[in-house]
Design a protein around this nucleic acid. Sequence first.
DNA 1: GGCAAAGTTTCCAAGTCGGAAAAATCGTGG
DNA 2: CCACGATTTTTCCGACTTGGAAACTTTGCC
Lengths: 206, 206
Amino acid sequence: MTSDVGLRERKKRATRAALSDAAWSLMTESGIEAVTAEAVAAAVDVSPRTFRNYFASREEAILDRILQRVTTFVEALRARPAGEPVWDSLAYVLPDMIMEMLGERERDAATLARVCAENPAMLAQQLAALGHVERMIAEVIAERTGADVERDLAPHLLAAVPGFAMRAVVTLWAEGATDRPLPDLVRMSIAQLRDGLPLGRAAPPT
Amino acid sequence: MTSDVGLRERKKRATRAALSDAAWSLMTESGIEAVTAEAVAAAVDVSPRTFRNYFASREEAILDRILQRVTTFVEALRARPAGEPVWDSLAYVLPDMIMEMLGERERDAATLARVCAENPAMLAQQLAALGHVERMIAEVIAERTGADVERDLAPHLLAAVPGFAMRAVVTLWAEGATDRPLPDLVRMSIAQLRDGLPLGRAAPPT
DNA sequence: GGCAAAGTTTCCAAGTCGGAAAAATCGTGG
DNA sequence: CCACGATTTTTCCGACTTGGAAACTTTGCC
């Protein structure tokens, strides 16, 4: 997988990953204020200007690593058996993907949710990243169903499901209004979407 | 509606609206680069510092007026007959609301889409605004269905439908891959959602 | 080795942000 | 109607951020 890229490309990826990791660590340990070009660059031992060459903002840097990891799951979606209904493929891949987007552990999800709640720029960046993922998913779905991603609506609607489920779930979960574990909530909301949107009646309470 | 607020409050709202209008005009006429605190403030004849008191960023200023107008439609949703199924209420209010979010004319929608496509900060801000609207809609839906917005999933899932439809539609439309008028596309995607998400098969081509 | 391409660094000018305090404006009770 | 407190706007300004330009280093390839 990495055999077809040279040293230069590998170094670039390593630097990018290291910067993003450092940015995330700084945020969790010292708050988002601490994520400055100087601090992150110092942690990775490059110049601040290099940090800015890679990322346009601290928020982008913080989320980049998660975005990279989520891409892995998009590939997993692409790799599902050819005959499988798209919805089944989604249901299979989504819980893990969403958990990945939220961070490797629930603690990370809580951190991210908290920071986003009190930091508009972070929220905005997270939503933008989500949109990017949706675009990738739409392309995979179009590819697998033979739809035209440039002309058909269906791939985009289906692709929005993950973000859909994720945002709804995280909103609920982050507000601490439920004590169910996060993966359960993810599965619940996917099941609810699969069975159809509730049409005018509230679903049974959590 | 404005009778219970004094002159001070009215002036504040007028200033905010004027600043946002000026910011939007500047963007459409001279590009987002032209939307500086200086330029916008000059157009409204206040100090640049006042502009910054109202808005944390140019993007926020540009979108604020649209956000305010959309709030009107959320109120329209709240005002639908009490017995009406929520889905019907949504179907009734949504096309207009989405058109409003996109701008008063289709030309505005195109402008916004183009700027967002080439400007991450603008995209992020738009998505954040969308999230804000969704939260408001979720609250109205919860209120109307007797659900608990802090605990139930259904209001949040339904509330995401507008943004859902909007993003999918605008993505298609802005890329110029279809020649149908925007309102038609909005109605199509809502109908498609109402009838259920396509389960594993592509919808008929546009 | 040597040359071109790509990446990194230093330097720095222009732009942005927001605190502090003075000045202007508004609401209210005499 | 005025005067006083509360709120908003303005001026001033220092700290921070952003990204261009050019020198320098590393990598890819012959």
